[in-house]
Each structure stands twice: as structure tokens, then as C-alpha cells.
Design a protein around this nucleic acid. Structure first.
Lengths: 210, 210
DNA sequence: TAGATTGTTAATCGATTAACAATC
DNA sequence: TAGATTGTTAATCGATTAACAATC
């Protein structure tokens, strides 16, 4: 199969389009044009069509796209046809916030296990999930066949946790610790770096002076 | 002044370099080469030198860069020479996590006001900051000359909050709501979209099958 | 048919990489 | 001086934009 490489920026936009289409669908709108999607999410119509073209032909010339249809296609492309089991490691401020985050459940990300090192937290319930000792991570994650790990532990512990997640056979890791992590090339890793986001803003604010 | 446009990817990396240099400096290391920085943060040496070259000549040929020096230069470039006053709007799960996030303080981001709509939260203290009614947002933010707003409110309210922040003269907004926001062009806006991050991962995990 | 909008190609723009002269 | 490493230019690679033929 000729797998034309898809830019990561395209994937991010597809995710945004799909969420926008959910909203549009809720309003009962049946058909939408690339121009309307573009308007709704703040990109150009050409960009929308180009992004979709990586994956097929989903529209009808002269008409546009069927909202429900396109939405389903996008969810399929993003791998969201079925739920994903997620392991959350670290129940500090950020971990706790993530454990309650509605946006994950809505998109089919089910937090099926939670781990922490603090004895006071172990055994407590977060929703229907019991917080477990971090020592059990590898065993539990492996048994659940959990494919995604979310790392929200202090920077100093992050690499150790990631190593354990890799041993437990997760396929992807979302990291909230502000450290550079090493993983084998077949493991998907993304970093969410909150301070960096603010610093891009401050740079731009300062750059306006020039 | 000839303001050569700097890629956003470069700014993000400068932020990462600066944090890495903080770490290296703590170990008492005096000099570092572009190759060592590259190794430490997972990019190429050419990339490091190119990124720095947008802003000047900070190294010595044959020797490398002075760690403390380069770190200071980077902090200056990123606009981190002085503290920034930040207004946090929304004290739900994510807002609460952000209010306690050490990484902000470390880099000079001081949360100087917090707002929420919930009467039960108004008046409570988060550290040294009293939670205020969201109705006071514009007045307080303006009086504090707060330049950065962080939006962590439900999607439905986000645009309204952003409009108020803009009226109150903030220069930059970091948005955690999964909605597309409209701001005047002079306002810097960045979106942190947690679900999108997971979806890039699931796409890539699924794409491995091809 | 006439109008609208897609899918796709070509042109443009921008970022990364490689190579090397400058120089400590 | 010889070795090392920067700063910078040119080459490559990749993504976005513009334009338009295809077609509903």
C-alpha cells in the first residue's frame, strides 16, 4: 500500500474538524461545505479539502459533505471507532484533573486504572476506579491490555514510569512531565508542556515590540 | 529593524533548551556544545545552532556555549526576564490543577487572580489568592494590569470569558476549552486541547497497521 | 443548463538538514 | 599548529495556498 505520509498538523486538524462536525450535527444540519467547515474552525477551505484528500473522497461536487457521514469517517480515521483503555499514572493536581476530564470519556477514552505512589491515595476511589500502588502498574496494565498511558508524575520519576509502561506493552504515552523522555521508536509519545505554551505566548507578546 | 520571521517550532524548542540548560547548570557544568544540547533534548545539532542564529551569536567557535550565559539569553528572548501576572478563570478540575502547578511559578508566571462562577468557590483561598466572582474579572484584571489570561471554563462559556479578558486588556490567552475562539488579531491565543493530543496518538497507533 | 463545490495539480512558501568556511 | 565547534549558506524536504477541471 502506498502510504502517503500525512502531516501531523493534518491529524490535529482532522480531530478539530470531527469535533466541529459533532456540534454541527447536533444542530440538525445535514450538509456542509469545505468553506463552512473552514469558517467554523478557522482555516482555509483549501486546507480542509487537502486534509480530507489524504484519506479519500468524502464529498459530492457541487453539494458538499454529509455531516454525519464525514464525522463518522473522521472518527474512524482517528482510530475512535472503539473505546480505548487508558492507564493514568500520578494523581497529583494534573492527574486528578485528568481523571475527571469529561472530554476524554466523550471521545471514547476510558481511564481503566489509576496509579500513585502515595499510601494515602492508594485504595481511594476515583469514580469507579480504585487507585492502586504504582508497583502494580506493569501487571495491571498488561492484564487489562491497556494501550495508552498518561504520565502525570513529578519530573524525576517520569522516565522510570515510562519504562514500566513500555514493559507493560502500551502503544502510546501522553506525558505531562516537563522532561525529555526516551522510548523505543515503535512507541508513540506526545508531550503536553504547560509552561512551554505560556512561553510561546510571552515571546510573541514581547516580539510585538519590534 | 529587519525582523526575520521566527518559526513557532523554534520558539518551542528555545523554551525546551532553556529548561534543559537550567538542569545542566544545576549540575555545575560550565560549557556545552550544540551537539550536547541536541542530544539532551532530542533534536539535531544543526537545528540547535539554526534556532539560536535567529537571535544572535551566543557561542565560541571551537569551544561551545557558556551554560549560564546561553540560559540567560534564552530566558530574555522568551520574555522571562521579569515575572508575568496571570489571571486564571475557571476553578474546575483543570483550573484547580493549574492553580497549584509548580512549573508556572518556577518560570515566573504568578497567578495573581482567580475567578469562578460558583458561589461555593467564591471567597475561598487558593494559596494566597482569593477566588473572586467572575463578574469582577474585567475590573480586577484591568487594575492589576494582568497581561495573561488562562481560560479553563466549560466550552459554552469560553467565548464570553475571552471577550471579557480582551476588554480588560490582556495581551495573551491560554485556552483549555475545546472550542474555537475568536479574538482580535493583536491578542496572542494558544489552545491546549487534551483530547486532540490523545487522538494524534490513536491515529498513529492505528496507522502502524498499514 | 447554470451554479456550486469538490478533488487534485502546480506554484508558493517555509522549515529542516547538510556542508563547510570561519575561527577559537 | 591541529582539533573542535560555531555561524551561515545552499540544498532538500515538506506543508500550504491558489487555481481550475471535473462533476453534481
Amino acid at each position: 500500500m502506498k502510504t502517503l505520509k500525512v502531516p501531523e498538523a493534518t491529524i490535529i486538524r482532522l480531530s478539530v474538524y470531527s469535533r466541529y462536525l459533532t456540534e454541527v450535527d447536533r444542530k440538525g444540519i445535514i450538509t456542509i461545505s469545505s468553506g463552512e467547515i473552514a469558517e467554523g474552525v478557522g482555516v482555509s477551505p483549501a486546507q480542509v479539502r487537502k486534509d480530507l484528500a489524504y484519506f479519500g473522497e468524502f464529498g459530492t461536487r457541487g453539494v458538499g459533505y454529509n455531516v454525519k457521514d464525514l464525522r463518522q469517517h473522521l472518527l474512524k480515521i482517528l482510530g475512535l471507532s472503539a473505546d480505548w483503555s487508558v492507564a493514568l499514572v500520578g494523581l497529583g493536581n494534573i492527574g486528578l484533573a485528568l481523571s475527571n476530564f469529561k472530554g476524554f470519556v466523550e471521545r471514547g477514552f476510558i481511564i481503566s486504572s489509576i496509579f500513585d505512589a502515595d499510601p494515602n491515595k492508594i485504595g481511594t476511589m476515583i469514580g469507579h476506579v480504585e487507585v492502586q500502588a504504582v508497583e502494580k502498574l506493569e501487571e495491571v496494565v498488561r492484564q487489562n491490555s491497556t494501550q495508552i498511558g498518561i504520565v502525570a508524575v513529578p519530573a524525576a520519576e517520569a522516565q522510570e514510569i515510562v519504562d514500566q509502561l513500555v514493559k507493560a506493552n502500551v502503544k502510546a504515552i501522553l506525558n505531562f512531565s516537563p522532561v525529555v523522555l526516551n522510548v523505543p521508536p515503535e512507541i508513540e509519545l506526545r508531550n503536553v508542556d504547560l509552561a512551554v505554551n505560556l512561553e510561546v505566548l510571552t515571546f510573541n507578546v514581547c516580539a510585538q515590540r519590534y
